[in-house]
Nucleic acid binder design. Structure first.
Length: 614
DNA sequence: ACTCATTTGAGCCGCGGTCG
DNA sequence: CGACCGCGGCTCAAATGAGT
């Protein structure tokens, strides 16, 4: 584009013709008095150099960061990846051209083409036969992403629009080619398009739903492949580290180490995990290239990780690309580490420390969303936040009122858990449980429920049908009672008492007899679960997870306590415990367990399997 | 060398939509 | 409700050609 000129085109043309005719500067100056002698010399020089007065072909002004070649490549790529986010575009430009750019600059590139990201998505969907995507911005016009950078972007778009309107009036679908597509604004509002214009819309909508479902299936398939891969890696490590001695105790995998490291940090746990992953897996920048300080989102890296895993899962060379967690920044005025009565009553943002604690507690207790069936776990998470509560209003706020502010805190925690879970899912930190179970578990973690199920199979094989059924009935009875007790406690216990009760959680897991008993409990419960998975899965899983929760909370400094010195609404009822003790000789004699806590070697595997769940 | 005009990018901000 | 994303307006700075 030419630079600004202060002389009219007529004057410039006249001067050019005079120069080309061979007249000297004095003559031209006299003929064109508005042109200075200095300008005349410059123009003459330009004509000698470039055969024109405007100098070289470089446009006036700041040169573009994205030259037309880069821009073309980007839009070609976008034609294949219409759903790409801006940060993905940034990475594409960086990966291919080593150009660091910003979303704003990319938007300007869209502006130059008189289009937008959503418009591209819309027309890509139309191109692919998916008409369900409603153009969200009908005021924008469209230029084919396949066309070269247009000098006049609008061109003769009006013809296409007219044709489209005519086709619409006839009830036809007027979109044979993207470059021929009319501007949606020229047609009608998207909602109207969806509802009235296209008889084909319904089919197309179903088609889009089908496509989305197919994509979802593909993602689930990739997730399963990831899980299998991780499982295999863990098995290999266990096998290579002398797993025969303790076959069911998982070794500390790099991922788990990373998790533990991340959880100890001050920020959201997964953030450091990804930073470490990035340090480990990010390829070194090319010589002379600084590391790209481009903002990145989890989705982008997760997609890369997923696609990478899909392509590499069969080769056994799975790699995760760089993962960066968006930095969570809070306004300075809200940066407080304590949760006080004022905070809990408002919608102020979560303090980093509290969010980190909550994130860690979610991971520790394996609870990633609030459910009534998981109240003990939820209360344990609430308990983890207790040290951060400013009960005295030290910051000049209101004094914390038990009950009232506890309930408000619970509500805020429920909301925040949802947000943190989204982060964890996006980061691949947690994945869905296997085998039809509901809920989430840490990525790479041995699926305790599935393991229990397998252990139950082993136990059944060892005990025979009759003996196993006995255990199964006993376990079910205990589960029902535990569940009822827990629900009762949840409904009638204040938060404060619940926290105190959680503090006093049973310390029984060090007793080998109880370990074996718990193992049998788990195994029997999950065998039953397998049989009645549609009927009883929820209640049984609650119980098993509750048992695991109790094991997790136990710091390992207590002995078996069946005498009920404390009130734990979520622990096994005291009466039942005594009953269990009385039944233990009978049980252990049947199952090969001994009174002294010696576990039959044939059941050690099962016991270990249960231990690993804690 | 300097000013002017213009283009472009970067950064900030607010708005609105979507999602969990 | 909070987080995220897309978008556009706005200001400022950088870069460049034109002109003095």
């Amino acid at each position: 584009m030419p630079g600004p000129t202060r002389h009219s085109a007529e004057v410039r043309a006249q001067v050019q013709s005079l120069i080309e005719a061979g007249h000297d500067n004095a003559y031209i100056e006299a003929a064109c008095p508005t042109v200075s002698e200095r300008t005349l010399r410059r123009w003459r020089l330009n004509i000698q150099r470039f055969n024109k007065m405007g100098g070289d072909a470089k446009p006036t002004g700041r040169p573009r960061l994205l030259d037309p070649k880069v821009e073309d490549a980007l839009f070609e790529w976008l034609a294949e990846n219409p759903a790409a986010k801006y940060d993905e575009m940034q990475w594409y430009v960086y990966d291919r051209f080593r150009i660091e750019t910003t979303s704003r600059t990319l938007r300007r590139a869209f502006d130059r083409r008189n289009t937008s990201k959503k418009a591209l998505q819309y027309f890509a969907a139309r191109r692919d036969g998916r008409a369900g995507y409603a153009h969200p911005d009908p005021t924008r016009t469209y230029t084919s992403p396949y066309a070269p950078t247009p000098g006049s972007p609008m061109g003769d778009m009006s013809h296409a629009q007219e044709a489209a309107q005519a086709a619409l009036a006839m009830g036809q679908n007027p979109a044979p080619h993207p470059s021929q597509l009319p501007a949606p604004s020229a047609i009608m509002q998207p909602s109207a398009m969806m509802q009235a214009s296209f008889p084909i819309q319904m089919d197309a909508d179903d088609e889009e739903t089908l496509q989305l479902q197919l994509q979802q299936i593909a993602l689930q398939k990739a997730e399963v492949e990831l899980k299998l891969k991780m499982r295999n890696i863990q098995r290999e490590k266990r096998a290579s580290s002398g797993a025969l001695a303790s076959p069911s105790i998982p070794s500390s995998t790099p991922s788990s180490k990373r998790r533990s490291n991340a959880r100890s940090g001050p920020a959201l746990s997964s953030g450091q995990l990804h930073e470490e992953q990035e340090r480990q897996h990010e390829p070194e920048p090319e010589p002379g290239q600084e590391q790209a300080p481009i903002s990145n989102t989890l989705e982008h890296r997760l997609n890369e990780a997923l696609s990478s895993a899909q392509s590499q899962s069969q080769e056994g060379t799975m790699e995760f690309p760089a993962l960066q967690r968006p930095k969570v920044s809070l306004p300075k005025s809200m940066r407080t580490d304590l949760l006080d009565a004022n905070w809990v009553s408002t919608h102020l943002q979560w303090p980093n420390a509290a969010a980190a604690t909550l994130s860690k507690a979610m991971l520790d207790h394996g609870l990633f969303s609030y459910r009534k069936s998981e109240i003990p776990k939820f209360n344990a998470i609430i308990k983890a936040l207790q040290p951060l509560i400013d009960r005295e209003g030290r910051g000049g706020g209101v004094v914390w009122e038990d009950g009232k502010h506890d309930d408000l805190l619970s509500e805020r925690v429920k909301m925040k858990m949802t947000a943190i879970r989204s982060h964890m899912i996006a980061a691949g930190e947690i994945v869905r449980r296997e085998g039809g179970y509901t809920g989430w578990k840490r990525a790479g973690e041995v699926d305790d429920l599935a393991e229990d199920l397998r252990a139950a199979e082993q136990l059944k094989a060892q005990l025979g049908e009759q003996g196993f059924q006995y255990l199964q009935q006993e376990a079910q009875q205990r589960m029902v009672q535990d569940s009822q007790q827990a629900q009762h406690a949840a409904n009638h216990t204040s938060h404060g008492r619940a926290h105190q009760a959680a503090d006093n959680t049973v310390h029984e897991h060090e007793d080998p007899t109880h370990q074996a008993q718990q193992a049998l409990h788990h195994a029997a419960a999950h065998h039953s679960l397998e049989q009645n998975i549609h009927n009883h899965s929820s209640a049984m899983q609650e119980d098993v997870q509750q048992q695991q929760q109790q094991q997790q909370q136990q710091p390992g400094h207590g002995s078996v306590q069946y005498d009920g010195h404390y009130v734990n609404p979520y622990a096994m009822p005291q009466r039942q415990q005594q009953q269990q003790q009385q039944q233990m000789p009978q049980l252990t004699s049947q199952t090969g367990l001994h009174h002294e806590g010696q576990i039959d070697p044939s059941l050690q595997t099962l016991v270990h399997a249960t231990q690993t769940t804690s």
